[in-house]
Computed example of a mutant assay.
Amino acid sequence: MSQSLTEHRIIFKWTATVLAAVAVLVGAPLLLGRLTPAGTNWERLSDISQTYGTPLSIAALAGVAVSLVYQSRQTAVTYAEAQRASHRQLVIMAIDDPELMVCWEPFTVPVTALDAKQIAYTNLIVSNWSADYRLKRFNDAALRVRCETHFRGEIARKHWENGGADWRRFAEAIGTPRLRRFVSAMDTAYAAAVASGPPRLSSSYFAPPE
C-alpha cells in the first residue's frame, strides 16, 4: 500500500509540473502582449522567446513521457497484484479442502496431507517474496538474508525440495532476469542450508504448554 501511495505521489508531482510548464508556455505570449509597451521590437522578443521556449517545450515533453512511464508501470503492478490475489485464492481453497489439492501438480517427493497443506502455504510466501523482489521492493542483500533464514525451517526445505526445479523451469521459460536471480538466490541458500545440517523441525517451533 505504501509503495502504491508513493508512486501516486510521484505521478501527481510530474503531472503538476507538466501542467505548470504548459501553462507558462501558453500564457507567456498573452502576458507579454499586455505588459509590453508600444514600440517594442517584437522580432527581438521573438528570438528570445524561441531561445527559452524550446528547452521549456522539451522539458514539458520529458515530463509527459516520465508521467506515462509511471502510469504504465502502475498499471502493470496492479495487474500483477490482481493475478497474485487470484492465485492465492485458488491455493487457499485447496488448503481448506484437501480433496482439491490433487487438482494441482503432483509433489516430486511423497508427502503427507499435512505436509501438502504446509508446502502449499509456503509457496504462497515465496511467491509473495518473488513478486516484491521483481518490483524492486527489496534488494539483493535483503533477499539473501530472507532466503538464509527461511531455509532454517523443515517445511521450507520440503517446499524447495519439491518445487525448486519447477521454479527454475518457470524462470527460464519466462526469461525475466530478475526472476532468474530470485530463483538462483533461493537455490544457493537452500544448498547452503542443507550442507549446514538438519533443519529445525516444525514440531520444535513452539514450547510445550505448561
Rank of each mutant, 00 (worst) to 15 (best):
Q71R: 13
H87E: 11
R134V: 11
F107H: 04
E43D: 12
R34N: 07
S49K: 07
V111F: 01
I11W: 02
S203M: 08
E172N: 12
I95Q: 12
L61H: 05
A65K: 11
R157W: 05
I155W: 12
F107A: 06
T112V: 05
R200S: 14
R178V: 14
V194C: 14
A113Q: 09
G164D: 04
R178I: 15
Q74H: 00
Y70N: 10
N128K: 04
A192K: 15
W160Y: 00
I92R: 09
L31R: 12
E161T: 10
D187V: 00
T17A: 11
R169M: 03
S4G: 05
E154H: 09
V77Y: 06
R34T: 09
T122D: 10
R178Y: 14
L19R: 03
A82E: 06
E210T: 06
L5E: 15
I95S: 05
R168C: 03
V18K: 02
Q71V: 13
A113D: 09
D97F: 05
D97V: 08
F206M: 03
Y205P: 01
L100T: 06
M1H: 14
E43S: 15
M1C: 07
Q3T: 11
E81W: 07
A173D: 09
N128W: 03
M186D: 00
L179Q: 14
A113M: 08
D166K: 03
G33M: 13
L25C: 05
Y52D: 04
H87Q: 08
A189E: 07
R181L: 12
